[in-house]
Computed example of a mutant assay.
Amino acid sequence: MGNGEGPTLITSVQRAFRLMEAVGAHECGAPAKQLARETGLPLATTYHLLRTLAHDGYIRKLNDGGFVLGEKLTTLHAGGRGQALLSRVRPALAALRDELSAAAYLTFYEDGEIRVAEIVDGPRAPRVDLWVGFEDAGHATALGKCVLSELDDEARDDYLARHPLADLTPRTITGRAELLRRLGTTPLTPAVTDMEEYALGTFCVAVPVYSGETLGALGVSLRADRIARINEIRNRLIPTAGRVTRGLSLTI
């Protein structure tokens, strides 16, 4: 154990937070000496913490020597907001899982990629083995194809130009023309399916959702021998997707 001399790690963290609070109180920035006075920190300690926080992106030094909050805090805030939004819709996903005995998935199209935001599964509703990332399997999953079907031509062409139509199972659609034809003729609209195209023995159904302007998809995966329930699944997914979209679109 230490001898008690010098600041502890907790004290250093507390000082760093106090310093960031002081920086945040000055929209146009404040110099190190002023921040030291406002926080009651020694000037040397203030300089050291400012250099460390600036190096990690939590604050930014202006040309005039003042300090303002950095982009790293904006990223943290956005991540926290995203988690808060997801917490609103997890009960709807859990209810969907329990009613259909199927794992529920939520994906979004962000920065040109299809990304999984949430999976709600359980012992009686195991998730499919994600042996290929969703970013590279949009053509083979109901969630991915649902997103692709909702994109405009330019965005869809951009995605397909960057992602080869890999042959994941014998049922995977690997021809661009055939994929586009299937996307335009989905009999369960707005629901989209994949029939063992991503993983043998599994079929999935997905419908579109939105988080503000961000497009996404809500879906479930089931064993292939439960395909007879497909209309029931579609009819359960659609109202749940509406509730998820409303929950994600509420401001925090």
Rank of each mutant, 00 (worst) to 15 (best):
L76A: 06
S249Y: 06
N235L: 15
A241R: 01
R182S: 08
E118F: 01
P239D: 05
A44L: 10
G219M: 06
L151N: 07
D158M: 06
A217T: 03
H77N: 10
Y105P: 02
A84G: 11
V116Q: 07
V192H: 02
T174C: 12
L165F: 12
Y58W: 13
L222I: 07
A95S: 13
A84F: 10
G4D: 06
L62K: 12
V147E: 03
S87V: 00
N63Y: 06
D157R: 08
A217Q: 05
A44G: 10
N3P: 02
A102L: 11
A32M: 03
P42E: 10
A217W: 05
P208S: 09
L9R: 13
P164H: 10
T75P: 00
E21T: 11
V244F: 00
L69S: 04
L237Y: 04
D136K: 09
L168C: 00
L96Y: 06
A32D: 11
H163Y: 12
L9E: 13
Y47E: 11
Q34K: 13
I238K: 01
Q14K: 10
E197M: 06
Q83G: 07
G242D: 09
L35S: 08
A78E: 15
A102R: 07
T74V: 12
E178T: 11
R81V: 14
L188S: 14
S249A: 15
D158R: 13
R223N: 11
E232I: 08
G122M: 04
G247Y: 03
A78C: 01
Y198M: 02
Y105E: 06
Y159T: 02
D167H: 15
R124P: 01
L19V: 05
T193W: 08
R234G: 00
N231F: 10
T45W: 04
L148S: 03
A25S: 15
R171C: 09
R246G: 10
T107M: 07
C28M: 11
P126T: 05
A16K: 15
N231E: 14
I173C: 14
R156C: 11
R37L: 12
T174D: 01
L183P: 05
T141N: 02
Y47V: 09
A92I: 02
G122F: 06
E197K: 02
L96Q: 06
S12I: 05
C204I: 03
R236P: 02
L248V: 04
R182A: 10
D152C: 13
L218V: 04
E5Q: 09
F108T: 03
V68C: 10
P239I: 04
T174R: 08
P31F: 01
L50R: 06
A92Y: 13
R246P: 00
G216A: 08
T39K: 11
G133T: 03
D121G: 13
C204T: 15
L183V: 04
E71A: 14
G82M: 13
V207Y: 02
L248R: 03
L222K: 14
G133N: 01
A16I: 00
